[in-house]
């Protein structure tokens, strides 16, 4: 545990809180994708071995945070907008499968602990890299916290590399990809939202 991971987690929970308060503007399909990644990841981590109380509490806490907004979105037809191109998910999922099978370090479905990255983990990590693109997440603060979460996790990994001499190439590469996807939203957030020049929209 270090301050970067703690701040990253706080940022992620801030993001979930924003989503719980106002889920208008967030695509239902994108939220489904988030659930598809977040739920198996949390459940796998908690069910394959005890890591720490902090880890368990945070991951269990995340599950309603991603599930409840989904319920809100699909119980209210007005929010079920944007991101209608299902092909993105099909192609994205296929790429993730290929990436997950090509670049994994150990050919096992899942593993409790250890340094290797097995199939399901690798798949889920690459899946988030693609679905985390968040092209349809119009909610600015939600995006800001998501981007901050990713950036802080990069700092977390750098910190762990220096303090523990520990490095996981797959996790770091996919983490960098995710953070890059958020860069344009960060740019818009700072140039338009903070300067008060009106509504945020993608270039």
């Amino acid at each position: 545990m270090n301050v970067f991971r703690l701040c990253g987690d706080v940022s992620a929970f801030s993001c979930l809180c924003v989503c719980l308060c106002v889920c208008a503007g967030i695509s239902g399909k994108s939220q489904v994708a988030v659930c598809l990644w977040c739920s198996p990841h949390g459940i796998l981590t908690c069910s394959t071995g005890f890591i720490s109380i902090y880890n368990t509490v945070m991951k269990v806490g995340c599950l309603p945070g991603v599930g409840i907004p989904l319920q809100f979105i699909y119980s209210t037809c007005a929010f079920r907008n944007s991101y209608d191109s299902g092909m993105h998910f099909i192609s994205g999922g296929s790429c993730c499968s290929v990436a997950g099978l090509s670049f994994l370090e150990k050919l096992t479905p899942s593993t409790p602990t250890g340094g290797n990255t097995p199939i399901l983990w690798t798949f889920s990590i690459y899946l988030e890299s693609v679905t985390g693109e968040a092209e349809s997440y119009h909610q600015r603060h939600y995006l800001f916290f998501l981007g901050l979460y990713r950036a802080l996790y990069l700092a977390n990994w750098v910190w762990r590399y220096h303090t523990e001499s520990f490095f996981d190439q797959i996790a770091v590469v996919s983490g960098v990809v995710q953070t890059i996807f958020y860069c344009d939203f960060f740019y818009l957030y700072f140039t338009r939202v903070l300067r008060g020049s009106g509504k945020m929209s993608l270039p």
Binding site: H41, T113, G114, R160, A171
Partner: peptide, 10 residues
């Protein structure tokens, strides 16, 4: 052994 990085992720 060190805890894997992907265990950190929420």
């Amino acid at each position: 052994s060190n805890e894997p990085l992907y265990h950190d992720e929420l």
